[in-house]
Amino acid sequence: MLVFLIRRLAQSAIVIAVMSVLVFAGIFAIGNPIDVLISPEADEIERAAAIARLGLDRPMHEQFLSFAGNALSGDLGTSFVHGVPAIGLVLERFPATLELALLAMIIAVVIGIPLGIWAGLKPDSAAGRIIMAGSILGFSLPTFWVGMLLIMAFAVSLGWLPASGRGATVDVFGVPFSFLTLNGLKHMFLPALNLALFKVSLVIRLARAGTREVALQDYVRFARAKGLSPARIVGVHILKNIMIPVVTVLGLEFGSVIAFSVVTESVFAWPGMGKLLIDSILLLDRPVVVAYLLVTVLLFIVINLVVDLLYSLLDPRIRLGGAKA
């Protein structure tokens, strides 16, 4: 277990190193680095001063080392627009994105698993076919368009739910969260549903495929021959088996939910780090873009690690560290 963790952390360190080289190359080497690091409005004298201060006249590898050094100490530059450290700006927005993504995942599981199991148990029934058609549609619908339709239907026409913003928040350890207030939840629901849409389709497909496979297994027939109730067979014997692929894929997809929140947050004006990224790109606020990237990379690494741990928790056959029973 410890060996596994150490090995994984070492791998992660390598990925971070590779990514920081890529980010450095991508943002700093392509285009003029000075454009990245100081405001475009700066005059010639300021530019020259900045070049000297930032050491942009030094050779490439020295520049990279100083970039990496700064990055390690959490200094990723200052936002041109907001005039505060970029990394702080991103982290400040992070809780909003995190709670949105988590609610979206919960929605995906709560809707997707029952529908997928249903479609898997009765693949030829009308309901099963409708569920599958719905999941193809869910894969095909562009997220941002669905978001707009949701706003049109539930906010504009029906007036049930607010169309934008985060609503009332409650501070937990100094971090504001929306999901603890009714008003906040109302604001969260549409964007979370929108963000969940694609994952619902994915979960339906995984659950259906898993159920179809598992339902044919001898252990399910044996469970029936033991006289177990259908609820127990589906809820324990089948569910626990299909949860393995679902949790794995969903875990890995969590990163993509965070990434796709860029779209949803733009549609619903949700003040998370996705919206921040788009705003920063459009305003050429590049230090913030860099900070966002590195935070996301770190996040992905943590997610992958957690997924692996969860996986071993769910499937007793997986031995961490690769040892076989």
Partner: peptide, 18 residues
């Protein structure tokens, strides 16, 4: 593997930002 571990939309966004 590294490229595929990042969502396409994110990579495309960054590339277009550049």
């Amino acid at each position: 593997d590294i490229q595929l571990s990042f969502p396409a939309i994110l990579i495309a966004l960054i590339l277009l930002a550049v």
